[in-house]
Design a protein around this nucleic acid. Structure first.
Lengths: 156, 156
DNA sequence: GTTGAAATAAGGCCACC
DNA sequence: GGTGGCCTTATTTCAAC
């Protein structure tokens, strides 16, 4: 994991479909060298995959919310069970298992606020382990396009 | 936005670097047809980009947290200002602007808990508009690999 | 809108440095 | 570990349906 690897990761986070030749040209290295580096990053698990990003409005899901959920009794089975349940729901974008006042934060995207309400009632309130929940509508969500190493770059 | 488009979007969310031929074969259409569909999805803004996903541990950032922040006075300038400030910090993965008890939820990834503490003190506590903040360490973060349309598929 | 084939460009392997 | 060349494979255009 040197500076070249770091640069490759940054470029591929911005555009995962640029050709190997284009990437090599930007970095000033030979395409074959670049290809080997990229493959090594995948094999070492630094790059975990390549994913298309979508516009939630285009998919009829303009309303986003963060749902905080408390479950009881606290234990591995209840936590694991709810986590997998929530992650499997089509409305759910991601699930955070957190420490502190709440146990889960569930990021959802739905067609409208009525369906957000229905989702809470039908999917969360009815679950016996859910003792409390609270929703925060998301007005805006900005994602950092690149995630770079922090601190000294590891030796691999 | 028919069912074919929907299927294309799902496949490209799982693997954005599969060849056009492979994608066409899975969908049972000609490669040239597939290519045109994919291009149309990009031009219509349904697919917004292709991004490499990375392992945060490999980038020396194994500690994640969600930081809830309240700012005052509440107004467009303060909200916009803090939002852009937070989104520009290298430790920050994404920023949620939310309604409800808190104003922001900031998703961060740092090398260790000490640097999480330092981040809060140096980057948030010192900001005059930040009147309160509270951190929740993330034990686990699951993302849904695919985001599909909900409800009736729009006519585009 | 979809297809098949031809032209263009890229990916991938290997010998060499 | 990095490079350049060669062969294989994919992408992309275009005329026709």
């Amino acid at each position: 994991m040197d500076e070249l690897d770091s640069a490759i990761v940054e470029h591929l986070q911005r555009d995962a479909r640029q050709t190997n030749r284009e990437l090599a040209r930007k970095l000033g290295i030979a395409p074959s060298t670049c290809l080997e580096r990229v493959r090594a990053l995948r094999n070492r698990g630094v790059i975990t995959g390549y994913h298309a990003a979508v516009d939630l409005r285009a998919l009829n899901r303009p309303v986003q919310a963060l749902l905080s959920v408390r479950v009881r009794p606290l234990g591995r089975e209840v936590i694991e069970g709810f986590k997998r349940y929530a992650a499997g729901l089509p409305e759910v974008l991601s699930v955070f298992v957190v420490a502190g006042g709440e146990d889960f934060l569930v990021h959802v995207a739905v067609p409208d606020v009525d369906q957000l309400h229905s989702f809470l009632l039908d999917r969360f309130s009815e679950r016996p382990e859910v003792v409390d929940h609270h929703s925060s509508v998301i007005h805006q969500h900005l994602s950092n396009p690149v995630t770079s190493p922090l601190g000294p770059i590891g030796t691999g």
